[in-house]
Design a binder for these strands. Structure first.
Lengths: 336, 336
DNA sequence: ATGAAAGCGCTAACAC
DNA sequence: GTGTTAGCGCTTTCAT
């Protein structure tokens, strides 16, 4: 693996290392001809600067980390797509880390970033995360962090989300409008920002429309398909709701499964609406009414915010919430 | 951002930099007590070694790159999951690059890896890639490459795939068994290994079962949903097939859409089977018969192969194909 | 058992 | 306009 580095270029061109370095970075005090010679040879030999050397020297890695709870999930997949698009455009590299909703993993992954491996972090926290010391520590060390989707308000930084409260309210109201009298909520961890907001939106609508507000209409789902189906089934049997609002796609699919098991017809016996970014929601049986988030744009926005502050030092991340609107798309699962 | 490095540890402990370094790496010629003191302080101060410094010094980055054509795709999503699992287990970091099926992007991304940024590469090539010079160049430079899914046979290395030919043959035969007399194939780029094999499997079955083998029963889809639907629609109108074998999930969904437009009933008017890793294929309307690949395991295997050779130098990647079996899952879309 | 010193490849003062 | 030099933080001979 004969490696071509600046030194070799300098030797071949009878120039100093410094001159070559400057020529490659298009510095003002190098003559045009020299620059051309250098660039020509660099191209010819397929020279690529060693990123570790320059990262070490400049304390910048042109790399960002993305920490997400899971990846087999349309939302995160789209968000990554947005993030990667921006990163590629601006010449950044992206490291992916998956916590699998495991707090301990999140902590140990964060530790790996204490040392300049990356210039910034995009994170959507795990559902089991309640203590944010690991992230505070990173921020204190000067690492810019942008939260997306599952944010944490106690951080002074940018947070990119959707209008979870409003959308949940609307989703619940939609079920009411379609004739539901008893609406259940399949909730995601209440310690999560989105879990909390989606719950609140649901509860407010329940209150406003004078629906039964029994605690047992609320199923706090876990991260285990089997168990979740069990819990949902129990709730169905006990409460016999005529409407279900699922906080995430997975729970909606679990409901479909449970309904099938119990011989319940959607939407006749029970109507279902869910947060979901499934591209083929319309091909489901029945097609699923969804609250769809602009996940790609969210990823793009979060990445753009982060990279902008990385590029110009004098634009530190301020404490702001960027809120995208989701859209409620009515399909058969909530038909009258 | 007061950074804690080896030098600082050494100062605080009244030891030399070298001793601290060795102590941290648990070297044999450091006394137990010294080691303990060093480790204790390192933990206390949350010391993390600077990865750029050690990468530069050791010519190893403990990082691998994953290049994939797209990410909004259940197959790749699962594969990444597998890759990430193995990487995390072995203390490797994973950089994600998406080519969006663009050859030029693939080339320029590959160039970024010429310089030691990563220790190895996992790749599934873009559908527009026909020239592999960029990858050969990397391999010549000594970078281990493992292919998965969309492989390239001309490389002397490990390739992890599924039994595409056999599965395609079986899928087509399945349609025949379900009564189809005229089967269309929605093909993915023939320059792709998988495109080629899936086509061959289809063609062999068509021949074996004496089905019409018109070229116009084969739709070579592009990478544009709109166009693909147009092409598929034309084919449907012209050929009126009673069976469709889709090489990838996206084309199956396009068929669902076209059938809906044309008022064709699946499976009565036309039966559909497809390669697909959609976790909720059974909730589609109608539920979709699929050839499902063990994508997670494929990712795991590819990563394991790569990391094994990275860990022990004397195990270079040999020219072998690791072939996983896919499973044909019959559902309503191919019912009699 | 510990330390001194060289150097990985690059950048950025600072000279000339 | 070009070259010299001193590190970035770490690993690794080689001395002691």
């Amino acid at each position: 693996m004969e490696t071509v580095n600046i030194k070799k270029l300098a030797q071949l061109l009878n120039l100093s290392i410094a001159t070559v370095s400057k020529a490659l970075r298009d510095s003002y005090d190098i003559s045009k001809e020299t620059k051309e010679k250098v660039v020509a040879l660099a191209n010819e030999l397929n020279y690529q600067p060693n990123p570790h050397a320059s990262s070490l020297r400049k304390h910048k890695s042109k790399t960002i980390a993305v920490i997400i709870p899971e990846i087999a999930n349309n939302y995160f997949t789209l968000a990554i797509n947005g993030i990667e698009t921006v990163a590629q455009e601006k010449g950044y590299h992206v490291l992916i880390y998956i916590t699998h909703e495991d707090f301990k993993k999140e902590v140990s992954l964060a530790k790996e970033l204490y040392n300049g491996r990356v210039d910034g972090l995009l994170i959507s926290v795990s559902s089991t995360t309640t203590d944010y010391a690991h992230l505070h520590h990173l921020q204190q060390k000067g690492l810019p962090i942008v939260f997306f989707d599952r944010v944490c308000d106690e951080f002074e930084t940018a947070k990119v989300t959707t209008d979870d409260y409003e959308s949940s309210y609307l989703a619940t109201r939609h079920l009411v409008e379609q004739g539901c009298k008893k609406i259940a909520h399949l909730a995601i961890s209440g310690s999560l920002s989105i879990g909390n907001k989606r719950m609140k939106g649901y509860q407010q609508a329940v209150a406003d429309f004078h629906l039964p507000a029994s605690q047992s209409l609320i199923v706090e789902c876990m991260n285990d398909d089997e168990k979740d189906r069990e819990l949902i089934k129990e709730m169905f049997l006990k409460e016999k709701p005529d409407g279900v609002f699922a906080a995430v796609e997975r729970y909606a699919m679990a409901s479909y499964d449970v309904c099938r098991q119990l011989g319940l017809q959607i939407p006749n016996d029970v109507k279902v609406i869910s947060f979901s970014n499934l591209p083929i929601a319309s091909f489901l049986n029945p097609s699923l009414s969804t609250i769809t988030q602009p996940a790609f744009d969210i990823g793009k926005e979060a990445a753009t915010r982060l990279l902008n502050t990385l590029e110009k030092k004098n634009a530190p991340l301020t404490n702001e919430s960027i809120i995208f609107r989701s859209s409620l798309i009515q399909r058969t699962s909530t038909s009258k």
